[in-house]
Simulated scan of single mutants.
Amino acid sequence: MKKILVPTDFSDCAKNAEKYALFLAQKIGAELVFLHVINTPVDWSKLTKEQENIFPDAKEAISQSKQKLTELLKQAESIGIKCRKVLVFNNSNEKIHRFVEDEHIDMVVMGSHGIYGFKDYILGTNTYSMLRNSIVPVFVVKNLPKKLQLEKLVFATNFREETGQTFKIVENLAEILQVKLKILYVNTPTYFLETNDIMSIGKTFLSQYANYEHEINIIDAFKEERGIIQYGEKIDADGIAVITSGKSDLKQYFSPSVTENLIGLTEMPVISIKILKK
C-alpha cells in the first residue's frame, strides 16, 4: 500500500476524509495524493496568462484551491508524510478513474455527506461513481471517529465462490492495515440458512481462499445492512468492509446499494472492494 488518493472539495465531510487519510498514511507509511477538481468556463490549460484575466472569478477560485491544497501538504509534511497535490480542470469521474490507474493508486479515501436519501446528494457524485467503478478499495468516511484507531474491521460475506479471489484482497488489505478481520455472515429471512449449514459453507470457503484462520460470526437480521451495523456496534468495530459488485444483480451483500445504505446508516468508516471478474 504505497499511494492513497484523497479527492477533496474542501467541504466539512471532505475534511473528515483528509484527517482520516493522514491517520491511515501514518499507520501504514503510505504517500498521500490530494486531488481537487475545479470546473472552469473554458479549457483553462490552453489559456495564456493574459487570457486568464478575462475570467477573474475562475482565476480566484483556482488560486484559493491551490492555497488550500498547499495547506494540506504542509499539514501532512509536518507529521512526516510524503505527499503531493493535483489540481484538475473540468475533469469527469471517468478521468478520475484513469488517474487512479495511471498513477498506480492503491486506495481512495473520500468523504460522504452521510444523509440517508437520494444517493447523488448523500455521497456526492464523485464518491458514488468511485464506489461503483473503482478498481482499488474505496474508504468512505462520513464522520471522524472520536478516537482515531483501526484495530477491528467487520467483513460481511456470504461465502459465495465468485467472491473468493476478492476475499484474498480483503485479507491482504487487513494485513497491510494491521487490523483484526471479523468475518460476519448476516442470516436474513430472504436468504435464511440453518447455522450448521452456514458454518459448513463458511469453513469450506475459508479453507479454499483464506491464508489465516478466521472465526465465523453469524447474526440474524431482517436486512443485511442492519445486521452488519448491529454486529459492528456490538464488538465496537473501527470500520466495515464489504465487497461491491458494480452491478445490482448479484444477490446478498454485493449490490452497490448495500454499500451505499451502510454509509448512510452507520457512523463507522466503510471500505468498498469491487469484486474481481473472472
Rank of each mutant, 00 (worst) to 15 (best):
138 V>L: 05
204 T>S: 13
139 F>Y: 14
263 I>M: 14
107 M>C: 07
245 S>G: 15
224 E>Q: 04
201 I>H: 12
242 V>S: 13
27 K>Y: 05
183 I>L: 13
135 I>D: 13
234 K>M: 15
17 A>Q: 06
155 F>A: 05
276 L>N: 12
116 Y>C: 07
150 L>V: 03
232 G>W: 00
229 I>E: 00
31 E>K: 12
230 Q>P: 00
120 D>C: 00
270 V>C: 07
264 G>D: 00
199 M>K: 13
122 I>A: 14
219 I>K: 02
160 R>D: 09
257 S>G: 02
66 K>N: 09
248 S>W: 02
44 W>P: 03
247 K>W: 01
43 D>E: 13
222 F>W: 00
21 A>Y: 06
260 E>S: 08
198 I>D: 01
75 Q>S: 15
245 S>T: 12
70 T>S: 14
159 F>A: 06
57 D>T: 14
255 S>G: 09
211 N>M: 07
69 L>P: 06
170 V>M: 15
79 I>N: 06
175 E>H: 10
8 T>W: 01
206 L>P: 10
234 K>R: 13
13 C>Y: 13
277 K>C: 01
71 E>N: 10
141 V>G: 00
10 F>H: 10
259 T>D: 07
274 K>N: 01
127 T>E: 09
143 N>G: 04
243 I>K: 04
82 K>C: 10
9 D>R: 01
216 I>A: 09
105 I>L: 08
63 S>K: 15
170 V>A: 15
210 A>L: 10
240 I>G: 00
38 I>H: 02
194 E>T: 02
225 E>I: 02
112 S>W: 02
249 D>Q: 14
